[in-house]
Design a protein around this nucleic acid. Structure first.
Lengths: 206, 206
DNA sequence: CCACGACTTTTCCGACTTGGAAACTTTGCC
DNA sequence: GGCAAAGTTTCCAAGTCGGAAAAGTCGTGG
C-alpha cells in the first residue's frame, strides 16, 4: 500500500496528515478560532506558508481527514452484494459510517457541529465535501440499479435524502439531549425513511 | 403592511433590497466573480462600506431576497388545512414554491446553481439559509402533528428530506437536459419520497 | 560519492478583504 | 429652526491570500 513511494512522497503525505490532524485537534480542544495557519503550522513546526501550500483554508485542513474517511463509506457501499435492495445496503452501511466519517469520538462530532454553526466557511467546506461523497454514492446506486444519472431522479434522491437525514440527526443529537446514541438515531431515521416517513402523527424515537 | 414606518425605515429597507437585487442581477448577468462590495455598491450608488454595513458578505447579499421569499413558503404551509396529511400539504406547496424561492425565471435558478458550484461560500450561505427555513418548516409540522422538536426525529426529517430533494432536483435540472420543467420534477420527486422511494429499479422521470 | 535537476519549504512582499472609529449627513421630533 | 438619533461615508489598521525567488532536500546517473 505504501510501497513504491520514496522518502519525499512519504514526507509530503506525513506533513499533510500532520497538518490536518493538528487542525482538527486544535478545533476540538480550543475551538475553531484557535485554528489559524499560524497556529497549525506552529504545532507541526513548519512555516505558515507551507500550511497554505497544502490547504487553501483552515476549513479545508480541518476536513481533509474526514474526506479521506468518507471514501471508506463509498467503498463499503460498493462492497455490498449487488442484488441487495438499496435501502438495505444503506441501512447496513450508514450507522457505522457516521462515526467513522464525522469523527472517532462523539465529542469530536459535537465539536464539529458546534464549530460549523458559527463558522459558515466550515459549513461550506463540509457541504461541498458531502456533495462530492453524495455524488459518488449516487453513482454507486445508479450502477447497481441500472439508472441513468442524467435522466433519473431516483439515484440522486437516494443519495441526497440519507445525507440530509444524517445532517438532521447530527444536528438534533448535538444540541438536544435525546438520550440515544448517534448510530441508533441514524438507524431510526433510516427506518423511517424506508417506510416513506410517518404521515400522520410523528413517531417518537426512544 | 408598510404602514407606521417612517421615511428613515423605508429608505433603509429600500437600500437593503436594492443592494440585494443588484447583487443578484450582477450574479445572473455577469457571473459570481463580478459581484463585489465595490461593484454592487456602485450600481446602487452608495459607498462600499455601506454595503458591508448591510451584508457581511456578497453571498449574504445575493441570497437575502431569496430568504425573504422563503418566508412565503412557510406561510403557505401553515395556511394548509390543519387536518391534511403532511405530505399532501408539502405536495401542494412545494412545486410552486421552488420558483418563487429560487428565482423568478428559470435562467435565474440555473445561474444560482452554477454560481454555487464554483463558489463554496455561496453554497454555504444557501445551506444555512435553507436550514433556517427548514427549521421553521419543522416547527409547523411539529405543531400540526403534535411532535416534540427536541425528541422526535420525524418533523426534522419531514423538513430536511424535501429540502434535500429540492436541492437534488435543482442541481440535476440545471446541469442536465431532462426536458421536464422544474415544478414537474419537484412533483415527481415528492411522489417518490412519499412512496418511500423506489427500492429496486429506478423510476425514470419522463 | 557527488553533482545536477526536480521538488519542497521558506522568506519576503504586495494586493485584497474586514471591520472599527470618527466625521459628516439625513431623519424624527419638539 | 434646532437638537438627538440613526445612517452614511472616509480613513485606516489588522489580517489573509497567494506570487516570486532564495534556500534546502531528495532522486538519480555518471
Amino acid at each position: 500500500m505504501t510501497s513504491d513511494v520514496g522518502l519525499r512522497e512519504r514526507k509530503k503525505r506525513a506533513t499533510r496528515t500532520a497538518l490536518s490532524r493538528a487542525a482538527w485537534s486544535l478545533m476540538v480542544e480550543r475551538g475553531i478560532d484557535a485554528v489559524t495557519a499560524e497556529s497549525v503550522a506552529a504545532t507541526v513546526d513548519v512555516s505558515p506558508r507551507t500550511f497554505r501550500n497544502y490547504f487553501s483554508s483552515r476549513e479545508e485542513a480541518i476536513l481533509d481527514a474526514m474526506v479521506q474517511r468518507a471514501g471508506a463509506l463509498v467503498e463499503a457501499l460498493r462492497a455490498r452484494p449487488a442484488d441487495e435492495p438499496v435501502w438495505d445496503s444503506l441501512a447496513h452501511v450508514l450507522p457505522d459510517a457516521i462515526m467513522n466519517v464525522l469523527g472517532e469520538r462523539e465529542a469530536d462530532v459535537a465539536a464539529l457541529v458546534r464549530a460549523s454553526a458559527d463558522r459558515p466557511a466550515l459549513l461550506a467546506q463540509q457541504v461541498t465535501a458531502f456533495a462530492r461523497v453524495e455524488r459518488r454514492v449516487a453513482e454507486v446506486i445508479a450502477e447497481r440499479t441500472g439508472a441513468d444519472l442524467d435522466r433519473d431522479l431516483a439515484p440522486h434522491l437516494l443519495a441526497a435524502v440519507p445525507a440530509a437525514a444524517l445532517r438532521a440527526v447530527a444536528t438534533m443529537w448535538a444540541d438536544g439531549a435525546t438520550g440515544a446514541t448517534l448510530p441508533d438515531l441514524v438507524r431510526a431515521s433510516i427506518a423511517q425513511l424506508r417506510d416513506g416517513l410517518p404521515l400522520g402523527r410523528a413517531a417518537p424515537v426512544t
